[in-house]
Structure formats: structure tokens, C-alpha cells
Amino acid sequence: MSTEQQTDTPMVEVRNVHKRFGDLEVLKGIDLTVDRGKIISIIGPSGSGKSTLLRSVNHLEVIDEGAILLDGVQVNRPDMKGLAFERHINHIRQNMGMVFQHFNLFPHLSTIDNVTLAPRKLKGMDKKTARELGMQQLERVGLAEKADVFPNWLSGGQKQRVAIARALAMKPKVMLFDEATSALDPELVEEVNRVMRSLAEEHMTMLIVTHEMSFARDVSDWALFMDGGVVVEESTPDKLFTNPEQERTRNFLHKHLGNNH
């Protein structure tokens, strides 16, 4: 949780969230607050629950207990059913951009159509305005010249940048990154990190699940270490990465940094 005094509603609030897959409890009471314009990184070993937590924030995973709020509005609504909830969650999701490990670009649509599909279909934007907006977003990630090619003709790094542009085109309040660089060849990681850094400079609120320790340390305002479905430790990134208090955090960092250097 941020140590700074909060002056307004947090952008994302996670309160005592529990999630089970059958008998396995993967989130065991998580609390997390992301303030406006802040960047929070979540690190941890595979199976620690970090991706599940991120996916729970926009309801791709349905939580069993607790509450998640986006800009003061509750995302999970156990009291709502059927179509009413469908409408509610679709509206909420339009305000959250999600970037996936495997990009999940729509292969049957050109790059520009990937970016403009949601604004056109969901916000009723006309084709010309949508294209202008789409081109702006593609320029933002440095791929305007690839507007009319299909995703299969892009490198992994380019795909991920298009996926970021696609999410940005909906003008989200928060961006969620689920191991956005994990599926990339090492030489392609930096181009995606560069785009994420530029978003950080624009004060985009971001929640990042990552294995890129040095990146997390550079861009984040706050960092969490998760293991076994709980937040083991959280602090400023400098402290978490250089002087963690918990043994488990130290072990993880030692192992991870040891493997990378």
C-alpha cells in the first residue's frame, strides 16, 4: 500500500480478495491500492497468484470473496446477475486496458483495425475519426507505418506494442500488464519496455505483473512481492529490490537475479 497520503479516490482498490480454483486457494486475502498516476509492480514466482490477481481486477477471473474497485466503482458485484452484470462489467472494462503475455491480437484484422475495432463498435466512433485516433496510438508506440499489415507479419515486440496501442485507444483509466514481455525474445523486450516507460512519463496509472526486475525497479512507485497467494512484502522498489525484509523475498530475488546475471 502506498505510503503517500491519499488525496482522492484510489484508481484501483483490492480489498481482502480470495480466489479458489477448486480446492486450491490461489489468492488468500489480498489488499492493494493503486493511486492515480502511480505505477505498481507485482513480482513473484510462477504460481504465486500474481497473474490471477491482475486478471481478477478486470474480472477475467471471478473472485470468491472480497471487493475490487475501479475509481470508486465496485467491479465485482455478487448482487448483480445476467444481463445487468454483463452491461456493468463491459462498461467497467472499457476503462481498463489489459495487455497479455501472448499479445492476443486479432489475427484476422489489420493492425489499425485491431486498434480501432473497440472505439468503433463500443463507442460508436465513425471510421475516419477512429482511424485518426488509431494512427495516433500507433504513432505513440512507433508503429504507424505498420497500420495496414496483419499481425502475423509483425515481430513479437511489434505485436505487443500494437496490443498496447489497442488498449490505449479506449483511453483507459488504468493499464494492466500481465507479463507483457515474458513471451518475447530478449532483444525485443526493450522496445516494449520503452513504450511502457513513455506511458509512465505521461502519468498513466499502471499495474504491472513482471519478471523484469530492473524494469520494475526503474519505473515503479511501489512494488509487491507475492508468493503462495499472499503479499509477502511491499515497499518502495529501491527497498524491495536492494534490502528486502523477508527471507522469502530475498531468496526469490537472489535466485532470479542470480539466473539473470
Binding site: 463491459n90 486496458g97 473497440a118 463500443l122
Partner: peptide, 27 residues
């Protein structure tokens, strides 16, 4: 069709029917 396709569409705010029509069926 890869389930990631539906997830990506849903994460943008598409409903179930729109996801099926615009994303899943064409593929």
C-alpha cells in the same frame, strides 16, 4: 479459436455476443 482471443475482446469491453460475432466467428 484460442481462448485468449475472447479474453482480449472481453477485456476491451466487448459483450459475449459481440465477441462471438466480431472476433471468434471470423476466425
Amino acid at each position: 479459436v484460442d481462448s485468449g482471443q475472447s479474453e482480449a475482446a472481453r477485456s476491451l469491453g466487448f459483450g459475449k455476443v459481440q465477441t462471438m460475432v466480431s472476433i471468434v466467428l471470423p476466425q
